[in-house]
Design a protein around this nucleic acid. Sequence first.
DNA 1: GTCTATATGCGGATAGAC
DNA 2: GTCTATCCGCATATAGAC
Lengths: 185, 185
Amino acid sequence: MATIKTSKEEIVKKAYQVFRTKGYHHTSIADLSAFCGIRNAHFYYYFKNKEDLMLEVLNLVKQYFKTKLLLLIENDTLSSKEKLQQIKFFFEKNYHYDNGGCIMANTVLETALSESSFLATIKDFFEFLFATLKLLFLSQYQDSKAQELAEATIQDIEGGIMLMKLYKDNKYLMNALKRAEKLLD
Amino acid sequence: MATIKTSKEEIVKKAYQVFRTKGYHHTSIADLSAFCGIRNAHFYYYFKNKEDLMLEVLNLVKQYFKTKLLLLIENDTLSSKEKLQQIKFFFEKNYHYDNGGCIMANTVLETALSESSFLATIKDFFEFLFATLKLLFLSQYQDSKAQELAEATIQDIEGGIMLMKLYKDNKYLMNALKRAEKLLD
DNA sequence: GTCTATATGCGGATAGAC
DNA sequence: GTCTATCCGCATATAGAC
């Protein structure tokens, strides 16, 4: 076994930060290597190409959200309302006006998705968010209403992240999260 | 006066379609010239550079929205509820899952706005939207509540446009518009 | 106003030594 | 696993004829 100086996962995590703030197309391999402290060519030891790297980034983010949120909603010591509050904290912690917003939404809006290999991962991400929120709303609403509230909440949050980035003000996301919380009062 | 074969405004309108669907960074001058039916070099007769062209595109869109929405809310023959319904129709007409979504939001999420010359125009666009909706909500709500509902509605709509693009399904935007309408029942 | 030709640099990606 | 060197194509932009 050779010594690993720079791990693949470390590069993916660093690349995440760059893609999230600069966008996919506008991020060059040179940008990435500078931020990761490695050479341009070294990316091609780990990844087939830039698209392949981006795919790994998106999958890592998806996996991170799934793991964290599953842990949360499967915690039987919490009520639905408390779980929703924990989700609020989770979003507040992960999104901030100067860290580039939601890489999933960014990628949707930046790319003409028809030819995109990122589509499946991004859809999966949002479907998981829908399902998670719906589960919580089902404690007080019937099926179709819970589904609608889940979708409306995600829309409110994602629109809020966009405005948060535009105005460099976290309040838009915060307000969306507060509105969600009120739905389980 | 020389004969004008391709008008500047025509190019800006065509460029709008391309930028909206392909994104700013990913759109090349060659993409634009192909779609406009002119030569690469001809862009530089009308515009200083690509950024300059994009700025004109964003300003045209902003102006279009301002003109249309002002006409609508200043029409004294309509009630606030009817005006809101007209705004709903206006959004339904202008946004569709296969036309690229909202170029303003796309540009916010695609670019690291700190160095962006587009910032002022985009902020202006959203502030006008806020003000327009707030005005309508003021018919039934007090000031701070009307402001919150205006912001929440824009967030819902913009998040809806994102999901609309992702799932190629207009329902997310439609639902957001319906929810807005219900606020004036 | 519109064209051809082209300068110039950057981007993604590869070859191959160590 | 990491490096240097480099290929190649595309992108923005300009020069200058018509």
